[in-house]
Design a binder for these strands. Structure first.
Lengths: 154, 154
DNA sequence: GCAATTTATATTGTGCGCGATGTAATTGCA
DNA sequence: TGCAATTACATCGCGCACAATATAAATTGC
């Protein structure tokens, strides 16, 4: 039954695209990225670069693995990204004197100053989501539960 | 106020990473991809490739822009992906005789046969999400509402 | 009937995102 | 003390994802 030729009327309903939570997540994120691209274009930042700036604005002087774990990314992703931010003059990178294996990432003056230029972004995104603040809070909570389950599973 | 040096106690609360719905979405999708990578490794498929196969299993013989619009992707993303699936022998690509601009994508015999090998995947993913079916349905619905708002906004 | 426009797909360049692998610094422990 | 194991980061290769651009086919307007 399950492995018969997949005609739309006979296929496994769980394999239908429009039934899948993961595709809803995936395609929604495509939309999020699209909106962020327009919001961040004038700052010449990508969304992942913006995320790195957000974590540094919250707490400066962090090593790479700190940033990795907060953003759920691998160093293979962040090392080149941080080098691009350094090349743009937004962050500095230096080895920790106490542990030469660690690279300490810190905001440059320009990186700190950029904070003033992103104040409107949460509001713009909120508007794009056109969704009540209560819904946003509830949805965020549900997603974090999912995220924990997914990362725990692997 | 908003553009003072971003100390963690004085910064704009809306710019805190852990308050952001979009980061919850982003990081949750990283987890989804991680789980799919392990599930799809034995089939040697990536998640976007799996999505293309899903849409073809639902309805075969579709042109590229059909697939693009159903997956919310651009042709610049799908054209190389489809060529890789063709090189793997899972799909065929041919120009439409009635409109030479269109490329019709269809399942090969191997592509159809692969359907039998993915029957367990929704169940595995469901388990990884460790979340009630009702929650999944509700969450999916909320995400689709968000997605519509985001794509309408741009 | 043919130029202008639109449509469908392809190409190029840039930036993620990560598995696999490498290297140097540090730690642990016999 | 010495050396194996671990940790922190970097590098490489591949596959998305898309903006910008190109090209050819089809359609429209006149």
């Amino acid at each position: 039954m399950a492995d018969t030729p997949p005609l739309s009327t006979t296929g496994n309903p769980a394999l239908k695209l429009d039934a899948q939570l993961c595709f809803a997540l995936y395609s929604t994120l495509l939309g999020v990225n699209k909106v962020y691209r327009t919001l961040l274009r004038e700052l010449d930042l990508t969304y992942p670069q913006y995320l790195v700036m957000l974590v540094l604005w919250e707490r400066d002087e962090r090593n790479v693995s700190d940033i990795c774990s907060q953003l759920y990314l691998e160093t293979a992703t962040l090392t080149p990204l941080l080098k691009r931010l350094e090349a743009r003059g937004l962050v500095n990178r230096r080895r920790s004197p106490s542990d030469e294996r660690q690279v300490i990432v810190s905001l440059s003056e320009a990186g700190r100053a950029l904070y003033a230029q992103v104040q409107h972004i949460p509001g713009c995104m909120s508007e794009a989501l056109s969704c009540s603040q209560d819904d946003i809070v509830a949805l965020r909570k549900q997603l974090l539960t999912l995220r924990d389950a997914l990362f725990q599973h692997v």
